[in-house]
Design a protein around this nucleic acid. Structure first.
Lengths: 344, 344
DNA sequence: CTGTTAGCGCGTTCAC
DNA sequence: GTGAACGCGCTAACAG
């Protein structure tokens, strides 16, 4: 942080007082046009940039927003952050980005750091190991606007932006039922995550609403979205008779499963229909292409950032909850197959 | 930025001076164990967090690093940022992240903002519209450590971390040649980008080294990695005779092309062999799976951040250039096919 | 070991 | 319209 040239230097080199320079810089009205002009010229020549740290001390505002996500290298979160970034840039805010790596300790430490930086607001999607909400209560107590998105904590009193995962899963299962499936399995996400619970509930309710029995063996939770999914879907496939459809928590595991089934000599969508979740790029590329639930991640980011800024500006005092809609993207992995004419 | 509780409050509530509190906080040696203990207890009870802005004013150090990338929602850059984040977190730095959206004006404005925040260092991968290096010279002049990664500007005097795209492309083409291809086309990236030029040179040199003629019609530049690729590969496919292999600048366009060729009744790898670039998740999923050039993006991020911190800490005064190696990941899209036994 | 003083760079009263 | 003085929250230098 080298900014050798301060407001003093500008003032001295012009033989005027610092307060005049300060006024000229901030377009205050009580400065003569002449002096303002000379000041601004000098400022440019000297490459003077006001020191934010000093300004923050006075203004009690940093224009800094903290953003914490579980992981950065995921289509979902990088899209969301992209949305956040675009909105913040428009409003002259900068974002300090942290990834918790799904670790509550790191998350907590990051928040402490961010508080030290006097962020004007915080956007967070909590890690899957987060249960304690103490640190968030502290944020709220300090009157720092807080918006939780995607992965939220119900107990924290703040605005929240989520995706209607329940409806997403419901629509997926409904689609499968309409395709004639009756033994529909569900590879569920980590049990602690609210989004996993919501999706599972959507799955359960869809089955119920259509009069299908729930077979507990057809629902298997995985501990991690990435590493643990294969174990989980293999467990599902130990059912006898096999499910005629599986509803997944993400696209990659759905595709991994399709490949596995292929190797086992099963055909998709004929023998088993598959639905993913997310609409990642991979879902268009797999063979068969994957029916999946699209989540508006970029919009989640944009909306969250917008809400946060409104709260900072005092444009809204009450907290709000938004739930964005998903969209079922139907592709080949759930296509109808007339069994009688098909052989192989 | 509400932090009503300051060091004064702590001092007052304990009936001691602020400097004692300050000392206790920073584990200075000239404080009695007893007072330190009571101070720390009080600090916790009052939820006091030191004000970084004030500290920065003294220390002339913000522990803030600026990070600018062309886009956030890309496998490559989100991986790189993830690497940066992990390294910075270890060293107690925070990162302010900006995306230029490939727009030089935005890039420039972001840098100005970051300078205002008195960042201790800057990590940047320049936009493809960046030609002017004036703002970077200013950063260098202000003695702010700067590391460019992936997309660099040769003219700027700073440390640089790149991927050996030249060798990556060379290896890809060499692989195709060894597979017997002789009419190898290249879908090149935006002409202004150094990485596009390097990859093209690797392509050209490989052809030359193996005694193959370069056909200018077999090399087509696209203006954008995403939108413009289909136009470009269709132009390549207007060649008569058709190429027997195409070397792409990314995986998605390679896969789009494979699909297009399929619809046209051509078979891959039999009729045309395809190589991508990046090793994105999609490359494992396509049918046929895609041979591609893996770039160590996470490592690029880690290394860049490490270099920057060393420079900030004064551990290294000279600028260095690192060029990380790519790895050719061979999959089905370039598999050998014995033509005589194959029919379709 | 602890308290007092000064000053980091800037904005904001006040006088003039 | 302009300048001097004060304070934002904190640390460093100096006393004691």
């Amino acid at each position: 942080m080298k900014s050798p040239v301060t407001i003093k230097d500008v003032a001295a080199s012009l033989g005027i007082s610092v307060s005049t320079v300060s006024r000229a810089m901030r377009n205050a009205k009580d400065v003569s046009e002449a002096t303002r002009h000379t000041v601004l010229k000098k400022v440019k020549r000297l490459q003077y940039h006001p020191n934010y740290s000093a300004q923050c001390l006075i203004n009690q505002k940093t224009n800094l927003i903290g953003v914490i996500v579980p992981v950065l290298h995921s289509n979902y979160f990088s899209d969301a952050i992209s949305g956040i970034s675009d909105v913040l840039a428009e409003s002259n805010y900068q974002m300090i980005v942290c990834q918790s790596n799904e670790n509550y300790k790191i998350e907590q430490a990051s928040i402490s750091k961010l508080l030290g930086y006097n962020i004007d607001g915080l956007l967070i999607s909590v890690s899957k190991s987060t249960k304690n909400d103490k640190i968030f209560k502290e944020v709220v107590n300090r009157n720092i606007p807080l918006v939780m998105f995607d992965r939220i904590l119900d107990s924290v009193d703040c605005s929240k932006v989520t995706v209607d995962e329940y409806e997403g899963a419901y629509k997926a299962v409904e689609h499968l039922i309409k395709k004639g499936c009756v033994r529909i399995a569900h590879l569920a996400g980590p049990q602690d995550l609210l989004i996993s619970q919501n999706r599972k509930q959507g799955y359960l309710d869809a089955l119920n609403d259509y009069g299908l029995k729930v077979n507990p063996n057809m629902v298997v939770h995985c501990k991690s979205f990435e590493d643990d999914a294969p174990r989980a879907f293999k467990k599902i496939l130990m059912n006898d008779p096999l499910p005629d459809a599986i509803c997944f928590i993400n696209d990659q595991s759905a595709i991994d499963c399709m490949k596995y089934l292929h190797r086992k000599g099963l055909s998709i969508p004929r023998d088993i229909k598959i639905v993913g979740f997310n609409n990642d790029p991979v879902s268009t590329v797999s063979d068969p292409s994957l029916t999946t639930v699209m989540q508006p991640s970029y919009e989640v980011g944009k909306l969250s950032a917008g809400l946060l800024i409104d709260e900072i500006d005092g444009k809204r005092t009450r907290h709000v909850n938004y739930e964005l809609r998903t969209k079922l993207v139907v592709r080949e992995s759930t296509k109808s197959v007339r069994q009688e004419t098909k052989k192989d």
